[in-house]
Design a protein around this nucleic acid. Structure first.
Length: 585
DNA sequence: GCCGTTTTCGGCCCGACTGTTTTCAGTCG
C-alpha cells in the first residue's frame, strides 16, 4: 500500500469521524497525519517493522503508528472498519457539496436516511430538507444547484490556465479607482501544479474599511461572473463560466503582509504559524500579528516583518506546506532556492523538422533573447510517425543543419551561445530504441522517452525503461513517469528502481517544465535528489513562445526545495554542462 | 489522537459569511 493510499484512508476516516461527531481534536490529528504521510518520500510500507521511523514523522504518535501498521498489513484498521459498519462510504461524497459539512451530512442521514448524492437530491426536490432544523428553502435551492455543478464539473485547474484567468480578473478589478494592487495568493502563489480556486488579495486606498463597500460592489458586479457565491464587508466569492471559483478579499494596505500570509496558506502552514505565535504571547490573523495582552500590533505590513517577528527567516511561498520549512526558517537553514535566472540552458525542444512550429534558427534566437547560453535541438525519432519523426538518414541530415546554425551563432556571439545537436528517441515496447547506435553517437544530447504502449504492467514498464537507459548513448531520461496533469493517469512504473539505476549510470532525469506535461511532481523530484540523480529541467518547446513556460518548471523545482546546484542546466556554458553529463561511450 | 522552553495532563488557530436564527451554529478558507 503506497503513501497516497494510506493518506487517503486516514483522510476518509477523519471525515467519517467528523460525521460521527467525534472529538474535533482527534479528528484533526487524523487530518494532520494524512497530510504528513503525503509528503514523505519514503514509502511507509517499508517502515512498518521500524516503529521509531514512523514515530519520527511529526504528527504520528503511538496510536497513529498502529493505524498505519494495520493499514499496511491488513488493508484496513479497527476505527475505520467500525465507522464503515455504521455509515455508508458514499456519505463522504456529500461533503464535496457546497454547504454540506459533517453536521449537515449526519443530520440528513439520521433524519431522512440519505446515503448518497442521488438520495439527497431526491429528498431536496420533494422539500424534505425544508422541515429540518437550520435548513430551509434557500439552503435547498443552493444545494440543488450545487449538485448540478458538482456533477458537471468538479475538477481542478492547471496552474498555467489559472494564472491566465487570474491576470484577466486582476486587470478588471484594477480598473476601479483607488486599487493599487491585486495579488494572486493561494495555491497559485504556492505554485501547486493545479489549483482548486483562485484567491486574489486586493489592496489600496479604496479598501479602507470606511469606503470599501464601493470596491466590493465593483468586484461583485464584474461582467465575467457566472454565479455570485458570497458578498460581505470585504470579501466576494464567485464562479466563472467554467466553474472556476474565485475568492477576492479587499483589505487595507496596512494589513497587506498579514493578509497575504493568511491568503497564501497553506492552511497547515498558517495553523502552525499561529500556534507558534501563541507560544510567544502573540496572535496572528489576516489583519496583523498582535500581542495577546494589549492587542498592540507587532507586524502587519509585509510578510517579511511577520516571519521575522516570529523569529523566522522569510519563507518562500512554494515551501509553505508545513513540511519542515518552519523549523528550517528558525535555524536559518532554508535552502537558497533556484530561480528562473539560474537556468542557463534548455536541452529539449522541437522544430518544424518534426512537430514543432519554428525553425532551428528561430528557436535559437528566441532562447538567446531569453538570456540562455545554450540549447539542444531534440526532434522526435521515426517511431512517432504522426510527428513526422526522423529516421536515421533524416536525423543525421538534421544535425548537420543544427551544426551549421550553431557555427553561425557562435561567430555572431563570440562563442557565447551554443546549439547542441540532439534527438528525443523513442523507447519501444521491448525497451530498445528506434534509431541506430551509430546515429545516436553523433548526438550531444540523447533523450529517451516512452511515447506509446502505456498500459503495460508495472514490472514490464519498469524493465522497459531500465533497459533503455542501459544504452550508453542515452544521457537523459525524458518524462520518466508519463504523468500528464489532469489528462491521463501516469503509466505505472517503479520510479524508485528507475531513479536508483539512473543515478548509478549517471543518466539525468528530466523535469518537463510544461504544466500539461510536467511528469515529476515535487515529491518525485525530492526523491530523485535524495537518490543522487542528476536532474535537468527542460521546456520541451514546440514553438518559440513555449520557451516562456520554463518559469512553471522552476516553480515545481522550488517546491521540491531544489537549489541551482541540483540542476544540470544551471551550468554556465555548454562545455561545462557536457562534462557533467554521462560520458559518451 | 498528538504533543511538551508551562512534558504524562490539558491544551489544541482565527475570522468571515450564510441562513434562519432573535444570539448562533455550521461551513469555509
Amino acid at each position: 500500500m503506497d503513501n497516497l493510499t494510506i493518506a487517503r484512508l486516514l483522510e476518509e476516516t477523519a471525515s467519517l469521524l467528523e460525521i460521527d461527531a467525534a472529538d474535533p481534536f482527534r479528528i484533526r490529528s487524523y487530518h494532520r497525519a494524512a497530510e504528513a504521510i503525503q509528503q514523505q518520500t519514503t514509502q511507509l510500507e517499508t517502515l512498518v517493522h521500524d516503529p521509531k521511523a514512523l514515530l519520527a514523522i511529526p504528527g504520528i504518535g503511538k496510536g497513529m503508528a498502529t493505524n498505519v501498521v494495520d493499514l499496511v498489513t491488513t488493508g484496513t484498521m479497527p476505527i475505520r472498519a467500525e465507522l464503515l459498519a455504521k455509515y455508508s462510504p458514499t456519505l463522504l461524497e456529500l461533503l464535496n457539496l457546497p454547504g454540506m459539512g459533517p453536521k449537515t451530512v449526519a443530520l440528513v442521514w439520521s433524519a431522512l436516511g440519505v446515503t448518497d448524492i442521488d438520495s439527497l437530491e431526491a429528498a431536496a426536490k420533494v422539500g424534505h430538507l425544508d422541515d429540518l432544523p437550520r435548513l430551509g428553502k434557500k439552503f435547498t435551492d443552493k444545494l440543488l444547484k450545487g449538485i448540478q455543478d458538482y456533477r458537471s464539473n468538479s475538477s481542478r485547474f492547471r496552474i498555467d490556465l489559472a494564472a491566465e484567468y487570474a491576470a484577466k480578473i486582476s486587470a478588471l478589478i484594477h480598473a476601479f479607482p483607488g486599487i493599487d494592487q491585486v495579488t494572486p495568493a493561494g495555491s497559485l502563489r504556492r505554485g501547486r501544479d493545479t489549483v482548486g480556486d483562485l484567491d486574489l488579495l486586493v489592496t489600496g486606498p479604496a479598501c479602507e474599511p470606511a469606503i470599501v463597500a464601493a470596491a466590493v460592489e465593483h468586484v461583485a458586479t464584474l461582467p465575467l461572473i457566472h454565479k455570485l457565491l458570497a458578498k460581505g464587508q470585504n470579501k466576494v466569492a464567485f464562479t466563472l463560466e467554467n466553474n472556476l471559483q474565485v475568492d477576492v478579499r479587499l483589505l487595507p494596505r496596512a494589513s497587506y503582509g498579514a493578509a497575504l500570509q493568511y491568503f497564501t496558506g497553506s492552511k497547515m502552514h498558517s495553523v502552525a504559524l499561529r500556534q507558534r505565535a501563541l507560544k510567544q504571547g502573540l496572535t496572528l490573523s489576516e489583519y496583523a500579528l498582535a500581542r495577546l495582552d494589549d492587542n498592540s500590533i507587532v507586524a502587519a505590513k509585509s510578510e517579511e516583518d511577520i516571519y521575522n517577528a516570529l523569529g523566522l527567516d522569510y519563507i518562500p511561498p512554494e515551501l509553505r506546506e508545513n513540511s519542515g520549512e518552519i523549523e528550517a526558517a528558525e535555524s536559518h537553514s532554508l535552502p537558497h532556492l533556484i530561480t528562473l535566472k539560474d537556468i542557463r540552458g534548455d536541452l529539449h525542444m522541437h522544430t518544424d523538422a518534426t512537430d514543432g512550429r519554428d525553425t532551428i534558427r528561430q528557436m535559437a534566437q528566441a532562447a538567446l533573447d531569453r538570456g540562455l547560453h545554450y540549447i539542444a535541438i531534440t526532434d522526435h525519432s521515426k517511431a512517432l510517425a504522426m510527428t513526422n519523426g526522423l529516421d536515421d538518414r533524416r536525423a543525421l541530415a538534421h544535425i548537420q543543419r543544427i551544426r551549421e546554425v550553431d557555427a553561425e551563432f557562435q561567430q555572431q556571439h563570440d562563442g557565447k551561445f551554443r546549439i547542441l545537436p540532439g534527438i528525443e528517441v523513442d523507447i519501444l515496447a521491448d525497451g530498445s530504441l528506434d534509431l541506430d547506435d551509430s546515429t545516436l553517437a553523433q548526438m550531444d544530447i540523447v533523450i529517451a522517452s516512452v511515447h506509446s504502449h502505456f498500459n503495460q504492467p508495472l514490472q514490464e514498464m519498469t524493465d522497459r525503461v531500465l533497459r533503455a537507459i542501459e544504452n550508453p548513448h542515452v544521457r537523459i531520461l525524458g518524462h520518466p513517469t508519463g504523468r500528464l496533469v489532469l489528462k491521463r493517469e501516469p503509466f505505472a512504473i517503479n520510479l524508485d528502481t528507475v531513479l536508483r539505476r539512473a543515478a548509478q549510470l549517471g543518466v539525468a532525469v528530466e523535469h518537463n517544465a510544461h504544466p500539461a506535461r510536467a511528469d515529476l511532481n515535487d515529491l518525485n523530484l525530492r526523491l530523485a535528489k535524495q537518490l543522487g540523480c542528476k536532474i535537468v529541467v527542460n521546456t520541451d518547446a514546440h514553438s518559440t513562445e513555449d520557451l516562456d513556460i520554463m518559469r512553471f518548471g522552476i516553480t515545481q523545482l522550488r517546491r521540491a526545495w531544489l537549489t541551482p546546484q541540483d540542476l544540470l542546466n544551471h551550468h554556465p556554458t555548454a562545455k561545462s554542462l557536457l562534462t557533467h553529463l554521462r560520458p559518451k561511450p
